[in-house]
Structure formats: C-alpha cells, structure tokens
Design a protein around this nucleic acid. Structure first.
Lengths: 347, 347
DNA sequence: CTGAAAGCGCTAACAG
DNA sequence: CTGTTAGCGCTTTCAG
C-alpha cells in the first residue's frame, strides 16, 4: 500500500501539487476556499507530509537543535524544557537530539545542519574538547552550554560561544564552606581527573580550597570514577562513598561533583551506620530539583538553570540574528545550604 | 558554501555516484581498492551522507522506533537502554523519538513509518486509548509497552500487542500488604481517576483491597493529581501528601501510584515532623533504581523492567519476522519491601 | 491566484 | 565490478 502523497491530494482536489504545498505551508498566495477544501481532504485522508522530502528541498528553515549528551541527567531535563519554550517564543522550531556516549556530538550536529538546514546549535553536556577540524566545519552559530569554563579549553577553541558557571571557584567555595564548618578530612567523588573535563575543574576547586587553608591533599580521600557508560549515576556515588568510607574512617565530609552522585553517597553513608550530617557531611553540585526532595535535603552548588538556559538561547540568537561574535559567559553559582551538611562533630 | 555531496566525491574519485553509494552502504559488488580510495576521500572531505535523501529513496530499512511519552520518567530510561541493546543484537537500528504531552504519539509514529520506512514500533508510556481510525493506519507491527492491561481497553483495540503488569492486582496486593500491617487509614496519590489510564487501574486495585477487607473507601483519603504537564513528579507527590496529611491527621499509610510521587510524598511527611515508617508508611510503584538510594529505601511494586523490555522487543520481532499475531502479555509484578513501610504504631 | 517543471541528494534497477 | 538513469515527495521558481 503506497502511502498517500501530495500528488494524491492534488488529484483528489483537482488542483496542482504546488497549490497543495501552498496550503500546507500557510503560503499567503492562495484562495481561502481552495485552501479550505484542500485542508479538508488532507484531514480526511490522514495525509502527513514527508519531512525528509521537505527538508531535502528547503534551503533554509527557522530551526535550531539542542544536542544533548547524557539525556538521563535530570539536570539537563529542566534546561531542555526551558530552552524549548524560549526558542518557541522566537518563532523558531527546536529539534532535540540525544547523542549516546559513543557518538561524537559535533559529527551529529554537522549531519543535522545539512539535513535540517539549521540556523544554530546548542550543545548541552558532552565532551570538553573537540577536534578543531570538525568544529571548524560548523558553519552556523553554536553555543556550548554548561560544559565548563572556556578559558580552560585549548587555544583553538577560544572562539567558541560558551556558557557555564565558574566550576573551579564554585567548587572551591563549597569545599571552603566545609572547612569553615571545621572539617579537615574531606573526601571528593570526581571523574575525569586527568582529562580536560568538568570533573577536572571541580577537582581543581577542591584542591585549591584545601591548599589555601593549608590542608594537605590526601590522595586516599580522592575517588575517581572510571566506570564506563553513564558516569554520573547514583550507583557510582554509592560505590565511591563506600570505598572512601572504608579507606578513611576519619573522613567527616564528602564533596561530590554532581547531585546524582551525592544522593548515592548519602545512601552509602546511611547504610554504614553513620548519620548525615552528624557524622559525615555531603555536598553535591548542580542543584537538581530531586535533591530538594531527598532526605536529608541536599546541600549543593546550585547552577542557575533558568538563567543559563535563557542566556544560552539569547546568545545563540544574538549570533544568528545580530551577527554578533561568540561570547564567553560565566554565570554565578550559588551555594544552597540544605540538611546534608553541618559542623564537624566535637570529639 | 554548498555542502559536499555524493557527486563531489564521485568527481574527485573519478567514479560514478553509484559506486560511491555502494562504498557507503557496504555493498558487496565493489572492488576493494576502489572502495578504499573512496572511503579515504570521504574521510578527507568530512563528507556526511544526507539521511533525508537516503530515506526518501530507500524502500525498506531494518529500523524500528521507540516512541516514548514522558522521557524524563526514570522508569523509562532504563527500559530504553535495554531495548536499544536488544534491538541492536537483532542487527536492526533503533530510532528513539520523544513525544511531548501535546503531541499524539500515534501521529508521530505514522509520520516516522512513512519517512524512515520502519519495520515496527514500540510505544512506551503515553495515552491509554487512541483513535481507532488513526491506529488502523499503522501498517507495521507495533507493541504497547507498560501502558496498562489491554483487557481494560475499549473493544476496538483488542487486537493490539500489549505488555504490562496487572496494574489492578499488583496495586491490590500492595495495599493489602499495608492492611496486613494493621493500617486502616490508607491514603492514595493517584491520577486520571476518571479516564482510562494506568492511574485508574491502580486506583481500582486500591479500592479492591479495601473493599475485600471490609474497609470503607473514604474520599478524603484519595488525592487526584490534575496539574497539567508532567503529572508524575516529585513536586506533585509532595503537594499531594501535604494535602492528605492536613485533611487526615489519622492517616497511617499512603499508596502512591509511582515511585517519583512516593519520593515527593516522603519529603512532605518528613517535613510535617512525622517519621517514616514509624508514623506513616509509604509505598510506591515502578521499582526505579532511584528509590533504592532514597532514605528510607522505598517499598514499591517493582515492574520487571529487564524482562518487560526484552519481551516487548521479542514480541515485536515475532510479529515482524514470524508474522505472528499480536499478543497480550501480562508480566508479574513484585512487591519489594524497603524501609518506607512498617506496622502501624500501637496506640 | 494557480499549474508546470526543475531539482534537493541519494539509492536502485539496468545495462554494460 | 561500474556508470547511467530514473525517480523518492516535496518546495520553489517561473510563467500564465
């Protein structure tokens, strides 16, 4: 059964295909009556235009793409929603593309640009560094959102638009807050320590806080997640905290580089018979909604999701519509004090 | 800057376009040397074939689609992963399509089938009932997964393949377990009470449990979520429990029709100064991983995610490859006893 | 306002 | 093994 096409509609209406196309695309140059009749037949037959064919032919569309790596991360979920809303207000369409851990997000973007004739791209999550050759092939404006401070990137990528919090400084403050509470034996659950990554930046903040306060960094207190696949998972946080606890009975606080990890860590601590924050304080990073429903409510470094999302889109449209140059924007992070942190227990 | 096409590659290699196409698609009828040379040029130029054009031309592809409504629901996240793996083992490609609350999943599926020449569809989440006219237009095998027991569906849809747990019975057992623990004043946080939906089935199980034990159903203990958008959210669970608690000081247990709701409810109970399960027991539904990291660990009705996912794909392929008829499969749910439920406090 | 005709980039016969 | 050719379904000039 051949599917119904624009030709069939044209035949049934006794008009040419171009007229049907005009009806479909809300073209002004069409008789309202003709249009009404065509639309009726379209509904009757349940005709759905073939997007592949449309995009193949079109030379430009008002569409941008959100290319997301790690879609299961709840931190991104809310950003996606806000961005989609905001793009819609600009009368642009959004296409959401999830890339797996194995795919290269730049390649995926390149492919989408060609096929969907995109006006711009927002990258959410994903790798910190990219092949400059590949990157240079992107001929439309694009923005990296929440992928770490640009200044930390290799030289070649300095021209990219970028929006993020100052991961190093925000982490430093979080750990400094723990130190202020009297903690000295502070663990960290991190990832990507030896490659340019958000994890590395946050780890650097951790070290910085300790060093400035004259506390020696003890490698036994550093847990690096190396497990493949979804690194930022509760399970990994759980495993990490178990290991840290076992190796450091004197540890009184843990800084986790994401809330999801922190939740897993809390569970491990609770299971070991210790109380939070009585025996061990826990701090996360991101400020996901879930953390506020956790018991205890998570202390965390809150990234300004709403503003970052809007700013990402704003920046992208500045480049698309006003031909502005890529900018590098640092957003303020905020330490959100919940119930998972407290003063160190007097001994 | 016109993007590089298959023609450019052909020209640069001094071959015809069809030879390039053959190289691209691993066609056997091609000289290995020619192919190697073509592939080299392809990599050099960074050529990416235009999928729209490919799919437009192709008459069939070994592809199935996962059409998911409510992608932020963690319960689906793991199912998606398992299904994708399993489909890959069958040497088929998967395309994951997220549909928003406003979109109609059947329409989306219809459009995908035409464009991507799909062999089959799995619907995950989404509406319980569909326009039979629309449904009948789907000309490839499809399976509804975790969308409630088919027997409860209107007559016209009896021919659909369906995989789910027995929502009514599983809910009945969960509530019966609470009754066995001595609870009499049991609240429920549900959704879609008056429309055919998973929520309605689970609510029916709740009523059934009470009735069989001779406990009168008290409408004050029933909270129906009506808030638009994402209904299954921690926030809604939180709001619901707050309301139930305020209206029923004597309530000693709450059955939530999803784990996400249950987590929100726990937080509300904890904030009201009551203890879980000391003062109030909480039971969820789904068995998401997150629930096992929650404090207290959630008591829940666990859906067999792994088996349901595999069975969904197996069923779909039985229909695709062996031309089997649609079947209706009921999977066993299992009450997973955690730390959020316990005997009613003696007064 | 409307129709005819020319492709978009690719695959799939069909001849060599 | 390889090149030529005819469209896939649609949008878009370009003439009416």
């Amino acid at each position: 059964m051949a599917p119904v096409t624009i030709k069939d509609i044209a035949k049934r209406c006794g008009v040419g295909v171009s007229t049907v196309s005009r009806a479909l695309n809300n073209h002004p140059d069409i008789n309202p009556e003709t249009k009404a009749k065509i639309m009726e037949v379209i509904h009757e037959t349940g005709f759905l235009p073939n997007d592949s064919a449309r995009y193949l032919k079109r030379t430009e569309t008002n569409t941008i793409a959100l290319v997301v790596k790690g879609i299961s991360n709840p931190f991104f979920t809310s950003m996606i929603r806000i961005m989609e809303d905001y793009v819609q207000k600009k009368s642009y369409a959004t296409i959401l593309r999830h890339v797996t851990a194995e795919e290269n997000e730049v390649t995926v973007a390149l492919s989408l640009i060609k096929e969907r004739k995109l006006k711009g791209i927002v990258f959410l999550g994903g790798d910190f560094t990219h092949d400059p050759m590949l990157l240079s092939q992107i001929r439309v404006p694009y923005v990296f959102s929440t992928i770490g401070n640009l200044d930390e990137r290799p030289e070649g990528e300095a021209a990219c638009a970028n929006i993020a919090v100052d991961d190093v400084e925000a982490s430093r403050q979080a750990v400094d807050y723990l130190i202020g509470l009297g903690h000295r034996r502070i663990g960290i659950v991190a990832e990507g320590l030896h490659v340019p990554s958000v994890g590395q930046l946050r780890y650097r903040g951790y070290r910085l806080a300790l060093e400035r306060r004259g506390i020696t960094v003890d490698d036994h207190l550093v847990y690096e997640i190396t497990e493949g696949g979804e690194r930022y998972s509760m399970k990994n946080g759980y495993i990490a905290a178990k290991a840290l606890l076992a190796a450091n009975p004197d540890m009184t606080a843990v800084f986790c580089i994401s809330d999801v990890l922190a939740i897993g860590a809390c569970r491990a601590i609770a299971e070991s018979g210790k109380s939070i924050p009585g025996d061990v304080s826990v701090i996360g990073f991101d400020g996901i909604e879930e953390g506020q429903y956790y018991i205890p409510k998570l202390t965390t470094v809150r990234q300004p999701v709403e503003e970052m999302s809007k700013e990402s889109i704003r920046l992208l449209f500045d480049m698309i519509e006003k031909k502005e140059k890529p900018r590098n924007i640092i957003m303020p992070a905020q330490l959100l004090i919940g119930e998972s942190s407290g003063p160190v227990k007097k001994t």
